[in-house]
Simulated scan of single mutants.
Amino acid sequence: MSNTEARHLLVIGIGAGDPDHLTLAAVKAIGRAQVFFVLGKGPEKNALTQLRRDMLDEHASGPYRVVEADDPWRDRTQDERSGYTTAVHDWRQRRADICERLIRDELAPGRCGAFLVWGDPSLYDSTLGILEDIKARGEVAFDHEVIPGISSVSALAARHRVNLNQVGRPVHITPGRRLAEGFPDDDDDADIVVMLDGHQTFRHLTGRGLWIYWGAYIGTPDEILVAGPLDEVSDHIQQVRAEARARHGWIMDTYLLRPGPVGTNG
């Protein structure tokens, strides 16, 4: 296959939910693609699919197609000891099967396709790893490039008007399931950003003198922000989180934990 026949893929970070989070590089990349691949998350998250379509309507510069497929189901009940890694591997393989089929059947050689990725493609997103898996299979030839986006982490800090780090301190980013296994003793002076925490691990960290900066649906009209001493606001966060999840059918939240009282930013 010659270079002129190669399929080209763009992995475009589109931000945490605010259409204005699109960078100029992302807008230019959207204008280059003729086919956009969307893996749906079920009817309760149709608003997220529609938001991506609205972005395309505003920024795509020529005729384009949107190709949708259902994201495969994933078992999220497993922990590290009871098969979490195996469950993720199985889900990624099934997701790779779908993406491989879409690239092969819906993107002609010589054309440009794109995946619109929430936040930044480099941070807790599977798209780049899945594309590498597909490449390793050797069945579909393509090249790809990555356009970074505004992550929910940076958006959280911006909405709370705080730095992610304090002077001379590290920042530790972790999924909630790892924090549930124990507070990182080797990072006892770190500020901790927690993502993908469906079990609200912060509930078990009261009594440590921590402050929390919490946000859900960041960058969308449904955004919720809570900040304060964890001991004082933990119950409130649990309440508003439960109410929001019941109202929308899903929730995506992120939070920053740091030793209190809040020190100097910078």
Rank of each mutant, 00 (worst) to 15 (best):
L56N: 05
E100C: 03
G168M: 12
P43G: 02
Q50D: 12
G149H: 11
S151C: 13
L10R: 08
C112A: 12
H59P: 01
D54Y: 06
R94T: 03
D20M: 11
Y213P: 00
R245C: 13
R247N: 08
V140I: 08
E106W: 05
C112F: 06
Y84D: 13
A87H: 05
S126F: 11
Q93L: 14
V66L: 08
V262W: 11
Q93P: 00
L48D: 07
P63H: 12
I98G: 01
R241E: 11
K28C: 13
R74H: 14
R76V: 14
A136K: 12
T4K: 14
E80Q: 09
T264W: 08
H248F: 13
A227T: 09
L123C: 08
T49I: 03
P109Y: 07
F142Y: 13
P229A: 14
N3H: 09
P229E: 10
R137G: 04
Y64Q: 02
L51G: 08
I237N: 04
A246G: 11
P229C: 13
E181D: 10
L131P: 00
V262K: 15
E58F: 15
P43W: 10
K41Y: 07
L179M: 10
G15W: 05
G228Y: 10
G228D: 09
E106P: 00
P175H: 07
T254P: 00
I150K: 11
D120R: 04
T4A: 15
Y124P: 01
W118R: 05
E80S: 09
I224H: 12
H248A: 13
L51N: 10
P72A: 12
G83T: 05
P175L: 11
W118L: 11
V67P: 01
R111P: 00
P63T: 10
D187A: 14
A6H: 09
G15Q: 07
D253N: 10
I98A: 02
P229S: 11
A114V: 01
S151A: 11
S82N: 12
V193I: 15
L205I: 02
D191I: 00
L39C: 04
D185R: 12
H204C: 00
Q166S: 14
D185Y: 06
T201L: 04
T49H: 05
T127N: 02
M252T: 07
D143Y: 07
G219A: 12
S82M: 07
G149R: 05
G83F: 04
D253C: 05
G249Q: 08
V162G: 02
D186Y: 07
A190W: 04
Y217M: 09
R111N: 14
T127G: 02
T264V: 10
D90I: 07
I192C: 04
